[in-house]
Structures are given as structure tokens and as C-alpha cells.
């Protein structure tokens, strides 16, 4: 078990390290010159140019700059934003909170809503099942920005139950403001989870071990909870884990649609402004969160499926 954990940890670190290299190298190779943004197109003396290059370490060889950057990242310094002339870490702080709240909120909606809808569809055949199945088919075809646009056009113009723009202040108010964005982010993933849940539960309901439980006189509620739901949650957990990890990237689009001041909006602004250090930092952070979340789900897997547990096999 410990060897398994260590192996996963080494794999995680290796992936993160290579990702950091890829992110850094990609932007190093970029044809655009960040200096032109610093000078704003004005004519500057070669001396000033050299000073600027030195200040942003643009005159160093690639590997030295990579090593410097990586060292800084490990110490929590994500680099210096060329546009804002500030450490990227300071710029990211508050925005990361917004994004984390958004992703967390959407994750709760996806898991609760998706599993509930899928379970209802699996257990109640007939119109309820057909309705939910139709709903998931439509939901799966709804990109987050389309849902966002639809929500905005309803709630900004016709009914004003939820705020459409802005971040709010204080935790409750912020969550209040994040409700529509979280729904927009959650719709298609909830449909996916609902569909996976329905399929998994239907499959378990037809399993032989459920027949055994029935033949032993176990009450239906107990069979559903202890055998059908318990076993069906194994594939659902895997898919839900990957889906929630993927929200980190999906949030970029939703933040943009709702003008939220989160990491995603910051990333898009930085790309538009050729602010390479900022882009590097945010992409690396998002990749790291995605990889870490995926690894955590991987590690949870043996806990919910004893067949996957290492060791102890006769």
C-alpha cells in the first residue's frame, strides 16, 4: 500500500515537473516579444532596452531562466507580471479564491444534482425516467457559455432573482453572486453524471448479487442502499472525479461570460496582453490543480472498491 502511494506521488511530481517545463518552453518559443508591450511601442534607447531585458531576465539562456523560474515557483513566487509590474502571486490570490468558490459550488451542484437525477431515473421507470433521459440528452449538448447566455438573458432582463454580474462581498453574498455561473458550469456535467449514475444503477439492479439479497428477504430499501447504490457509486465516483477536475479549465469560459474577476478572466486578459509570466503562472496552477484532483480520485478508488486494493489477495 505504501509502495502504491509512493508510486503515485512520484508519478504526480513527474507529471507536474514535465508540465512546468512544457508551459515554460512553450511561452519561451512564442514569437511575440513581451518587451514591445513594456515599451508600449515607443522608441527606447538600446540601453534602456538592455536594462529592461535584464530586469525581466530576458537576457539569460533558456535553461537558466527555467531553473530560476522553477525555483521561484517552488518558493511561492510565480514570476513578475509584465503588465501589472507586480508579483503574479499577489495578483492571483483573490482571483483564485473566486475561481475556487465557483468550481466548488459547481462541483456540489453536479454531484448532488447528477446523482439525484440519475438515481430517480434508474429507480422509476416510465415518464419520470423518459423525462430525465431527455433532459440529460439536451443537457449534454449545452456548452457552458450557451447556458450562461441563456441564464443572463433570462435573469438580467426578465426576472431579477439572481445577480448576473459582479463578485459580491462576504462569503454568502459571493455565493449568491456565483449561483448563476455555477449553474452554467454545472449543467452539462450534471447531465453526464446523471446518465452515468442511471446506467450504473440499472446495471447493478440487474446483477445476480441483488437477486441473492432479495432471495434472503432483505428489505428493498436496504438492498437499494447497501447493494445497488453502494456498488453503482464506484463508476460514478471515477467519472465525477474527472469531471470536477475538468471544471478548473471550464471555469475560464464561465468567468468570461459572467465577467467574474477570477483566474480564468485573468488568464484570458493576460493572453491578450502577451503577459507571458502571468500566463505561465496561471496555466501551471490550473494544470497542477487538475492533476492533483485527478490523483486524489485515483487514490480514493481502492477505498470505495475493495477489489482494487493492493495486497491481501489470496
Amino acid at each position: 500500500m505504501i509502495r502504491f502511494l509512493l508510486g503515485r506521488l512520484v508519478g504526480l511530481l513527474l507529471t507536474l515537473w514535465i508540465s512546468s517545463f512544457v508551459v515554460f518552453a512553450a511561452l519561451y518559443l512564442a514569437p511575440g516579444d513581451p518587451i514591445s508591450f513594456l515599451t508600449g511601442g515607443r522608441e527606447v534607447s538600446p540601453l534602456t532596452l538592455a536594462e529592461l531585458r535584464h530586469q525581466y531576465q530576458l537576457d539569460q539562456p533558456f535553461l537558466v531562466r527555467y531553473a530560476d523560474w522553477l525555483g521561484g515557483v517552488l518558493h511561492g513566487h510565480l514570476g513578475q507580471s509584465i503588465v501589472a509590474h507586480q508579483d503574479v502571486s499577489t495578483l492571483i490570490g483573490a482571483r483564485a479564491q473566486t475561481s475556487a468558490l465557483l468550481v466548488g459550488y459547481a462541483a456540489v451542484l453536479i454531484i448532488l444534482g447528477g446523482i439525484a437525477a440519475g438515481t430517480i431515473a434508474a429507480l422509476f421507470k416510465g415518464p419520470l425516467d423518459s423525462g430525465i433521459t431527455l433532459g440529460t440528452t439536451v443537457g449534454l449538448a449545452l456548452p457552458s457559455f450557451v447556458t450562461a447566455i441563456a441564464l443572463i438573458s433570462v435573469f438580467a432582463v426578465d426576472v431579477r432573482w439572481f445577480p448576473v454580474f459582479g463578485d459580491g462581498s462576504g462569503l454568502l453574498d459571493r455565493l449568491w453572486h456565483l449561483t448563476l455561473p455555477a449553474i452554467a458550469l454545472a449543467v452539462s456535467s450534471s447531465a453526464l453524471i446523471a446518465r452515468i449514475t442511471r446506467g450504473a444503477l440499472r446495471e447493478e439492479l440487474g446483477r445476480e448479487h441483488v437477486e441473492t439479497a432479495r432471495s434472503r428477504g432483505i428489505p428493498r430499501r436496504k438492498i437499494l442502499r447497501r447493494h445497488v447504490l453502494r456498488n453503482g457509486m464506484i463508476p460514478v465516483t471515477t467519472v465525477a472525479g474527472i469531471t470536477v477536475a475538468g471544471l478548473v479549465a471550464g471555469s475560464v469560459v464561465v468567468e468570461r461570460a459572467f465577467n467574474l474577476n477570477g483566474l480564468g478572466s485573468f488568464l484570458v486578459q493576460s493572453v491578450a496582453a502577451n503577459d507571458f509570466p502571468a500566463v505561465q503562472a496561471v496555466v501551471l496552477l490550473m494544470v497542477a490543480v487538475f492533476v492533483i484532483l485527478s490523483t486524489v480520485v485515483d487514490l480514493l478508488y481502492p477505498l470505495i472498491d475493495p477489489r482494487m486494493a493492493r495486497g491481501g489477495t489470496q
Binding site: 448479487h209 447497501r226 447493494h227 456498488n231 477489489r307
Partner: peptide, 8 residues
Amino acid sequence: RAHINPVR
């Protein structure tokens, strides 16, 4: 093998 719940 099929008639006993594998995760209990």
C-alpha cells in the same frame, strides 16, 4: 462469484 456482492 456473481451472486455475492463483490464490494461487501
